[in-house]
Amino acid sequence: MNIEITTTVESIEQAKQLLEKGIDTLYFGEETYGLRLPTSFSRTEQQELVELAHSYGKKATIAVNGIMHPDKMATISEYLDFLAQIKVDAITVGDPGVIYLLNKGDYPYSFIYDGHTLVTNARQVNFWAKKGAVGAVIAREVPYEELKAMSSHLDVWGEILVYGATCIHQSKRPLVRNFFSFIQAEESVGKERDLFISEPKKPETHYSIYEDTHGTHIFADNDLNLMGQLDKLVESQFTHWKLDGLYTPGDNFVAIADCFIQARQLIGEGKWTTEQMNRLNEQIEVLHPKGRGLDTGFFLMDPDEVK
């Protein structure tokens, strides 16, 4: 059993550290086409990152998973060609229009279907596999009980987010900018502003919110950490794991990735124990940004709990 670990990247320096630690795939891109990335890299940087990954014998996957309006589609062919030139290994795609272009052209890389909230059933994944997808990113709203049921029906692998922020809303509307305009406040609305919303009468909740050229993004109350659930993932053959560092910067993200790499090692050697799991979990809790929570999201939920 081969566990593959994919991580986002915020800088060339961080990419080096992640590769040194032993991750398998660097995941990055540019904001125009990719969704919710820690950094929007220039073309030169993207080329450098691909070469870096390859120099370690590892892979580079590029985020091309936005909902594309005609203005983006007008320029995307040139970008898809560029990605071929720099020899990326795969791209993520969430818009069938991009799949239409991929299937019309002759691109040397594969694609992973990433429709976010829309990937909740093995038959959906298999549909995209028939259109050429080599894998699919599974929605965060799929509990483990459903993952188990999915597993035996999947024709290609399903990727699971094991660590990081979960996007739960994407609006094309500039929701935060509109609000600040209404209250006549001069405020920035980007990710770096680190804004939150909380539910009515639940001041303890803290959903991250920001805007970019794709619109407004809102994230789950707590970030996801499935360190304690890895044995279940392995048992049900979900062995493509992603770590998202959108809200976990710098060395801490590398150290958290290292925890998962250690876990993979221990699982592979048959040495995965509750003690080891607790040890790594504690490390993650220390490394996780202050003010942000961690939980297992929908993973342990009874499927019937969601109406």
Binding site: I67, I168, S171
Partner: peptide, 23 residues
């Protein structure tokens, strides 16, 4: 819908009601 339709699970996370399954 305020979101891109289908790309919103606020209801799932805040109310345990699946926005994409009629809830």
């Amino acid at each position: 819908c305020i979101s891109y339709s289908g790309r919103c699970t606020l209801s799932n996370h805040m109310s345990k009601r699946d926005a994409n399954r009629g809830g």
